[in-house]
């Protein structure tokens, strides 16, 4: 079997006495598109945040492309990773946030150039060219010099996607990327993600409330409940024929709301 691109090996996350993720096992193959759904507080966003190293894990190990992320091998045992190791492995991952988190003091193109130039050491001209290409790909070729405050939410989120792609990640994480958008702006962002899925070799992991999109786009859907994967499978199975009682309740509640 080939090495999974991402692997959670019995990963546990606690906040004080509250267990957010309970011994999670999850493997994601290269180029696989996985949608994570579930009620709020089920730990789904925490999965992405741990993978991005924004949250410490309490137990277990996360592997990215076969390498431990927050640990490294030393004399045959795994010890907590140093900054160098962490940054090297983390370089495989990019993330898009619910609230965009663009840098407000930089234009769209500078947002997309900052990390390639200062982290990857790419020459400015090359970074600019590539950033322009990426902004063009997300449909913002005419907005490169605009500042975030001059862009709509949907446009900002597309800049954020371009910014993450500029670092050439192998894995892209999408954390409820349409939840903060007005309904009429959701489509333009989802279209960009669709395009990414079809044109790029990217492993994608998304936490979403867009059930229609998850069903159409994902290869696999994981339903989280109480810090565990309560049910997972192909989208058609999960959405048409959920086996778990919790999944059924959740899906009917979501459908009712829509």
């Amino acid at each position: 079997m080939t090495t999974p691109m991402v692997k959670f090996d019995k990963v546990t996350k606690r906040y004080g006495s509250l267990t957010v993720l309970d011994s999670l096992d999850l493997e994601i193959a290269a180029n696989e598109k996985v949608a994570i759904i579930g009620p709020s507080g089920s730990g789904k966003t925490t999965v992405l945040r741990m993978l991005m190293t924004l949250e410490r894990i309490n137990e277990g190990i996360i592997y990215v492309d076969g390498e431990p992320l927050t640990h490294m091998e030393k004399n045959g045992t795994l010890v907590p990773a140093d900054q160098r190791h962490l940054r090297r492995v983390r370089g495989n991952i990019g993330m898009v946030f619910q609230h965009f988190n663009l840098f407000p003091h930089m234009s769209a193109i500078r947002n997309c150039m900052e990390a390639p130039v200062n982290v990857l050491g790419m020459p400015k001209a090359e970074a600019r060219e590539r950033a322009a290409e990426l902004l063009d790909m997300v449909g913002l070729g005419d907005k490169v010099d605009q500042y975030p405050s001059q862009l709509s939410g949907g446009q900002q989120q597309r800049v954020a996607i371009a910014r993450a792609l500029a670092m050439r990640p192998k894995v892209m994480l999408f954390d409820e990327v349409t939840s903060a958008l007005d309904p009429e702006l959701v489509g333009e962002v989802l279209n960009v993600i669709r395009k990414l899925g079809s044109e790029h070799n990217l492993t994608m992991l998304m936490v979403t409330h867009q059930m229609g999109f998850a069903r159409e786009f994902a290869d696999r859907v994981c339903f989280f409940y109480g810090g565990k994967i309560a049910e997972e499978g192909a989208p058609d199975e999960i959405f048409s024929n959920p086996e778990n009682e919790r999944t059924r309740q959740f899906l009917s509640a979501v459908l009712e709301a829509n």
């Binding site: 991005m52 940054r87 983390r90 982290v119």
Partner: peptide, 9 residues
């Protein structure tokens, strides 16, 4: 968080 996601020291 965005800085971490872009792998900035």
């Amino acid at each position: 968080e965005a800085s971490v996601a872009l792998n900035m020291p």
